[in-house]
Amino acid sequence: MNQPSNPFLKFIQNNREELLAEWTDKMKALDDPKVSSVLSDQVYTNTCNEYINILLLSFRGEDKEITSKICDFSQRIVQQGWSLRYISTGLSEFNKLLFFEMTIDDSEEEKMKLVWSFDKWISPVNSEVLYQYASSWERTVSLQKIALQELSAPLIPVFENITVMPLVGTIDTERAKRIMENLLQGVVKHRAEVVLIDITGVPVVDTMVAHHIIQASEAVRLVGAKCLLVGIRPEIAQTIVNLGIDLSQVITKNSLQKGIESALEMTNRQIVSLEE
């Protein structure tokens, strides 16, 4: 980043508090009311102040340090949930505010002389902010996707040789593939004899979903375990009947509790009441 002329530095240093206050107000006004009502005024002030610190640092021309500061700054604004559009608009508003305040008493000719050097100084800083924001956002989304994939088909051991896979939400082809992989790996890892697939949280069971469940059940059987389908609500049962889906090869129970009781029986155990 090229080192700009001193008038910019001097003006920011002499008018920092006024610039900060006015820009903070603009940022709050630009933000979604649902967001601004949750964030404190101090968050806006700190964010704007951090950006001004980056601008001041840019006068020293130390690219590595500036990039590091911008990276940290971008990560924080991503965590605050601010959109790229909002950040871009906010930076543009500050640029206009700063340039207008600097040249308020200048003639049009003098303003035009400053435009090029002003843009040459501040554009690389803003470009790096937006680039680091996009990179940080991509990393965040990627980590969230991995976390969601891990949670999309968890296999939980509840008793020795008994595991449960609770499913929540819709089941598409990609998720069905993950369910199959986790089931087979989990059966081996936990030495499961009985696996319960709990569909209490699955809103719709259509022909495709039923097909995936039957495939999963068959795969579990082939590796030496038994599969129970639990959590079949009345409306789901009616849908299965209306669609003519054949689940005769799958053991079904209407609740997870009933399924666990059956699983215990299959592994030669039972739940007993302790007399006082």
Rank of each mutant, 00 (worst) to 15 (best):
Ser37Trp: 07
Ala219Asn: 04
Glu65Ala: 07
Val78Ser: 09
Asn182Tyr: 02
Ile66Arg: 13
Lys111Met: 12
Leu155Phe: 04
Ile162Asp: 02
Ile70Arg: 05
Glu138Lys: 12
Glu17Met: 12
Ser255Asp: 03
Ser88Pro: 05
Lys96Glu: 08
Gly61Tyr: 08
Asp172Asn: 09
Leu183Gln: 01
His190Arg: 11
Lys28Leu: 12
Ala216Glu: 02
Lys69Cys: 12
Ser36Val: 14
Arg233Ile: 07
Ile171Arg: 06
Leu56Gln: 08
Gln132Lys: 11
Glu181Trp: 07
Phe59Ile: 01
Thr67Asp: 08
Asp105Val: 05
Ile146Trp: 02
His190Gly: 00
Arg221Cys: 03
Arg178Leu: 15
Leu229Gly: 02
Arg233Leu: 07
Ala237Pro: 05
Ile77Trp: 09
Glu50Gln: 14
Ala263Gly: 01
Ile146Cys: 00
Trp23Phe: 05
Ser58Ala: 15
Arg233Ala: 05
Trp23Cys: 03
Leu130Thr: 00
Met1Trp: 07
Ser83Ala: 07
Val194Met: 06
Ile251Ala: 14
Gln149Asp: 13
Ser217Pro: 02
Val38Pro: 09
Gln249Lys: 11
Leu247Arg: 10
Tyr133Val: 03
Val209Pro: 02
Ser217His: 09
Val158Leu: 11
Leu196Trp: 02
Met102Pro: 08
Val164Arg: 03
Val35Ser: 09
Glu109Leu: 09
Asp72Leu: 13
Glu261Ala: 12
Thr163Asn: 09
Thr207Ala: 11
Val129Ser: 00
Ser248Lys: 13
Phe73Pro: 00
Val230Arg: 06
Ile240Trp: 06
Ala134Leu: 12
Ile156Ser: 01
Lys145Cys: 01
Ser135Arg: 15
Thr24Ala: 10
Phe100Ser: 14
Glu235Lys: 03
Lys253Phe: 13
Ser83Asn: 08
Ile214Arg: 09
Tyr131Glu: 13
Asn95Thr: 15
Phe99Gln: 03
Gly90Trp: 04
Ser248Cys: 05
Ala29Gln: 14
Gly186Trp: 08
Val129Ile: 11
Ile66Gln: 13
Gln75Thr: 05
Gly90Asp: 05
Ser58Arg: 09
Ser36Tyr: 10
Ser58Leu: 00
Ser152Arg: 02
Leu57Ser: 08
Lys226Ile: 02
Ala176Thr: 08
Ser117Leu: 04
Val141His: 06
Glu160Cys: 06
Thr47Val: 15
Ser152Asp: 06
Val220Lys: 00
Tyr86Lys: 13
Val129Asp: 03
Val250Thr: 06
Glu101Ile: 10
Thr252Arg: 02
Thr24Ser: 10
Glu18Lys: 14
Asn6Ser: 14
Pro7Trp: 11
Ile146Pro: 03
Ala29Ser: 10
Glu18His: 12
Val125Trp: 09
Glu193Thr: 11
Glu150Thr: 00
Ser92Asn: 13
Glu181Phe: 08
Ile251Thr: 15
Val115Thr: 12
Leu155Arg: 03
Ser37Thr: 12
Ser123Val: 14
Lys177Phe: 04
Leu155Ile: 15
Gln3Cys: 08
Leu143Val: 15
Thr140Gly: 01
Phe11Val: 06
Leu256Thr: 03
